[in-house]
């Protein structure tokens, strides 16, 4: 740790350090945690949210009776983009029914990556719906597993029912460069999107 003094003229330490965030979403077991790990500069951490008023429904689903407290964790990582800009990556909980806990989870995010396992396309439907509902710009990243079949991208687009403007890229979430390329695709998409008037998106 860098122990800087508090007496710097002009206020607090850290000068103009800024942050941006990108969410890594997708269905259960699609590689979200793996991607956060592979691109992060820091040892990935988890932050926890405590659910104190578990509904009967949640209690039943997690199989614990009379439970009033449950913890849902969120993996996150950090990439230092330059001396003053940090990119924080947050992997959403695999179980979408917990997303409500993260009040404003997607608020203030530049955008999201939705990971899709082509062997189980349906597992990411909810994540895609959620991005559309919350108006979060996203790219779809097909995480390639050893026994994944190669589908033509247009077939995947059709099955996922996403707009022709939403990019689809293939990746290996375990690979840093490949995961980085997915983030690059997202930022390029955000730039292109901004060049098009809102109505025609």
């Amino acid at each position: 740790m860098d122990f800087k003094g508090f007496d710097r003229p002009g206020g607090p330490g850290g000068g103009g350090t800024r942050s941006v965030k990108v969410m890594i979403a997708g269905g259960f077991g699609t590689g979200k945690t793996t991607m956060v790990r592979s691109v992060s500069d820091i040892k990935p951490l988890t932050t926890e949210e405590t659910l104190t008023e578990a509904s009967a429904d949640v209690d039943r689903l997690i199989g614990v009776a009379d439970k009033t407290e449950t913890t849902v964790s969120l993996d996150f990582g950090k990439i230092s983009l330059n001396d003053t800009l940090m990119l924080y990556l947050f992997g959403t909980p695999g179980q979408e029914r917990f997303w409500f806990l993260w009040n404003g989870l997607f608020k203030g995010a530049l955008g999201a990556v939705v990971l899709v396992d082509t062997r189980r396309l349906a597992s990411s439907f909810r994540a895609i719906e959620e991005m559309e509902r919350q108006n979060v710009p996203f790219v779809v990243a097909l995480n390639v597993f050893p026994d994944s079949k190669e589908y033509p991208l247009e077939e995947v687009r059709d099955a996922l029912d996403i707009s022709p403007h939403t990019p689809i890229v293939a990746c290996d979430a375990r690979d840093r460069a490949s995961s980085r390329d997915v983030l690059v695709a997202l930022i390029r998409h955000l730039k292109e999107r901004s060049a098009v008037p809102l109505e025609s998106r």
Binding site: L45, T47, E48, Y88
Partner: peptide, 21 residues
């Protein structure tokens, strides 16, 4: 811990505290 800017998420993880606490 925040002499240098630190995200709330990192801070929570380092202190072992849930976000709402």
């Amino acid at each position: 811990r925040c002499r240098d800017p630190l995200s709330a998420a990192e801070l929570g993880a380092h202190l072992g505290l849930p976000f709402n606490i």
